[in-house]
Simulated assay, not measured.
Amino acid sequence: MAYQLIPLSVQATDNIQCPYCQQDVINWAEEQYVQPCEHTLFIAMDIGFEYMTDEFEQSMPRSVDDLHAHDDQVNMFAEITQSTYPNYLILKSDLGIQGYSRYVGFTA
């Protein structure tokens, strides 16, 4: 397994920080709340992707465009964890919709 999953005990409206540089990569005080730092590989939800580096996308079996085209049939977490990217960290938080989560990936 190339990734480590860390469930966060935060509310859906809480900011999420990079564990390395402490930048808020989800920052609800900003109009554009997605604020990736240099360590961020992706920001995803069970319903799609909000951000992804080209490098991480190339390590996945399917492209983001293909996943979004079939998002009603895709398990985004399963897709993320099939990446061949070496050693990454996934922070998992509640999305605010019952049964849905947000996943933020960082280089390890």
Rank of each mutant, 00 (worst) to 15 (best):
F106L: 11
D14I: 10
S83C: 06
D46G: 11
D65Y: 07
Q35R: 14
W28V: 01
D54I: 14
Q73M: 05
M60T: 11
N75Y: 06
E57S: 04
T107V: 15
D94H: 12
I47F: 04
F56Y: 08
E38M: 07
E79C: 05
H70N: 12
T13G: 09
L8F: 09
E50C: 00
Q98H: 11
N15C: 07
L5F: 14
E79W: 01
L91Q: 15
A2E: 11
V25M: 14
H70C: 03
L67Q: 03
R102Y: 11
G48N: 01
Y20S: 10
Q98Y: 01
I16N: 09
Q4Y: 10
S9I: 06
Q23P: 01
T53I: 08
S93T: 15
V74A: 00
E30L: 10
V64F: 03
D14C: 14
N87Q: 15
C18K: 08
Y85Q: 14
A29N: 12
Q58T: 14
A29F: 05
A69Y: 02
P7K: 15
A78V: 11
F49G: 03
M45C: 05
L8N: 13
A69V: 00
P36V: 00
A2S: 15
Y100N: 08
Y3E: 04
A12W: 14
D14K: 07
G96Q: 03
P86M: 04
S59C: 15
Q98N: 08
L95N: 05
E79D: 06
D54C: 11
I90H: 01
E55P: 00
R102G: 09
C18I: 04
E57N: 03
V25H: 13
I43H: 02
A69W: 03
L5W: 11
K92F: 06
N87G: 13
Y103S: 05
A44S: 03
E79Y: 00
C18E: 15
M52D: 06
T13S: 10
H68F: 03
Q4V: 13
R62I: 02
N15G: 13
D65T: 11
S93D: 12
C18P: 04
T13Y: 05
D66S: 02
Q73E: 02
D24G: 12
A44L: 02
G96K: 03
Q35C: 13
C37I: 15
L89R: 06
Y100S: 12
P36R: 09
T40D: 07
Q23F: 08
K92L: 01
T81R: 02
W28D: 02
V64D: 13
S63D: 10
V74W: 00
Y100K: 12
N27C: 12
Y100I: 08
D14R: 08
C37N: 14
F49N: 03
L41A: 14
Q4W: 12
M45E: 03
Q17C: 09
I16H: 14
T107L: 10
Y51A: 00
E55A: 13
F106T: 07
T81Q: 07
Q17A: 13
